[in-house]
């Protein structure tokens, strides 16, 4: 064990890691293995055909692009919202705080239907955008809007506890020493919040890539234009093409895994550097 991990006096490593890995295998890895095995029943040629099918490529571009954009929007606005909720007091703060989780609790179909109702050309917001030639519902913008809503709780709820725990006295100390507002933000707040912000960003992004229920209502679903990758999986399934569906699912999984792993490695590396600098 000792070469595998660094020594620590804290107890419970074997138990907690063992349980986590067991549970992970039983619930996640074995079922996902079924997906991989299903994909493996298809030959290389067929797999490459799926991979380079222009429709698949177009849908991947939309799914990953819109998710990235939505996660970025969430990174910025999620930080602003978390900051506002934690640091400022104003009427209705607690209620708004409690409502942040709603995109999770509402069935995705309901979010999709409600967003479409709001952003369609006859909706409250859509009708004010239409005169400027901005169409949200049934375009790629609609996809981004839906994914932003879906991802919002991830970012806000990740940053919030970190902001709460940010050592206020450290800030105060910096301030009494005469550090400017921007310096406090850059040197103290940002480093503490960054891991949580990255976590939230990653999860919002990952969730967006796979999201189906809310997007199909607002996207328009036109092949090559507003067709998301999960819809292609459904389409394959409707033709009883389990293997094709599994192949697209597997591809999405691999891309997501690589992106998640990169961000997690980046974080681990960043933390080590941070710890090293601190000591």
């Amino acid at each position: 064990m000792s070469s595998f991990r660094q020594p620590s006096i804290l107890p419970g490593f074997g138990l907690t890691l063992g349980f986590s890995v067991f549970f992970l295998c039983a619930l996640v890895l074995i079922p996902l293995a079924a997906l991989v095995m299903k994909t493996a029943t298809m030959g290389w040629d067929d797999f490459l055909n799926v991979l380079f099918d222009p429709r698949v490529l177009a849908s991947f571009r939309l799914s990953f692009g819109a998710s990235l954009l939505a996660a970025t929007l969430n990174g910025i606005f999620g930080f602003v919202i978390a900051w506002t909720l934690v640091r400022y007091d104003f009427p209705g703060r607690k209620l708004i705080d409690a409502l942040i989780d709603m995109p999770f609790a509402l069935p995705t179909a309901v979010s999709g239907i409600a967003l479409t109702a709001v952003f369609a050309e006859n909706g409250w917001i859509g009708e004010h955008l239409a005169p400027f030639g901005i169409k949200v519902a049934y375009t790629w913008i609609g996809v981004v809007v839906a994914l932003t809503l879906i991802g919002l709780p991830f970012v806000v709820r990740s940053i919030q506890p970190a902001l709460v725990e940010v050592q206020r006295d450290l800030e105060d100390a910096a301030e009494t020493l005469g550090a400017g507002r921007f310096t406090i933000f850059r040197r103290i707040i940002l480093p503490t919040v960054t891991p949580a912000l990255l976590t939230g960003f990653t999860m919002a992004f990952a969730r967006g890539v796979g999201e189906y229920g809310s997007v199909i209502f607002i996207a328009g679903n036109l092949p090559m234009k507003t067709e998301i990758a999960p819809l292609l999986i459904v389409i394959k399934l409707e033709q009883f093409d389990y293997v094709g569906a599994a192949a697209i699912g597997f591809l999405m999984l691999v891309i997501s895994f690589v992106m998640l792993l990169s961000i997690n490695l980046l974080q681990t590396w960043g933390r080590r550097r941070h710890v090293a600098a601190g000591r």
Binding site: F4, Q6, A206
Partner: peptide
């Protein structure tokens, strides 16, 4: 604890979020 393969473990835990509900 610090141990090898931690980033991979975290990523595997993240994975279900990235899997399309379908």
């Amino acid at each position: 604890f610090e141990f090898k393969g931690k980033s991979i473990l975290i990523t595997l835990i993240d994975l279900p979020i990235a899997v399309s509900p379908v």
